[in-house]
């Protein structure tokens, strides 16, 4: 549902609809970026379990596949808890402007939406 444009369009009773925050690109806050070396990753899920933003992306088999940069705020917990040293943190400034804006690396937010629906 699109944002209400006038008071007549506001749903009654202060209601907001479930899971609508999936449109909110919190990745724009990020000042540093985790990058996963999938070669080193042992899919222990420690990062997945500790991520406050549920931004560890997984593939169809449920293996760790990357970072969901649409949502990742860059706190660095994933790198800190990784026992295989597979995640490194880089300043966002090292990535191109275009890359930062869209969060084009990592999983597509559409996929994230799919298993929430």
């Amino acid at each position: 549902m699109s944002k209400p444009q006038c008071w007549q369009e506001v749903p009654l009773a202060t209601v907001a609809f479930g899971a609508s925050a999936l449109k909110v690109q919190t990745g724009l806050w990020r000042s540093s970026r985790p990058v996963i070396d999938t070669e080193k990753c042992i899919s222990c899920y420690k990062c997945w379990l500790q991520c406050p933003d549920d931004s560890i992306a997984t593939d169809d088999e449920g293996k760790v596949a990357g970072i969901n940069l649409f949502f990742c705020k860059g706190c660095g917990i994933c790198a800190k808890v990784c026992p295989a040293d597979a995640i490194a943190i880089y300043p966002e400034s090292e990535f191109s402007e275009e890359d930062r804006e869209g969060g084009k690396t990592g999983a597509d937010p559409g996929e994230v939406g799919a298993h929430v629906g």
Binding site: P4, C6, W7, Q8, V10, P11, L12, A13, T14, V15, A16, F17, G18, A19
Partner: peptide, 21 residues
């Protein structure tokens, strides 16, 4: 099956519209 959230945090962007409604 149709989850909604009551009592959202609503700043100046929509508070007025909700009150008018």
């Amino acid at each position: 099956d149709n989850p909604v959230s009551y009592g959202s945090f609503t700043m100046s962007e929509y508070y007025f519209e909700i009150k008018r409604s």
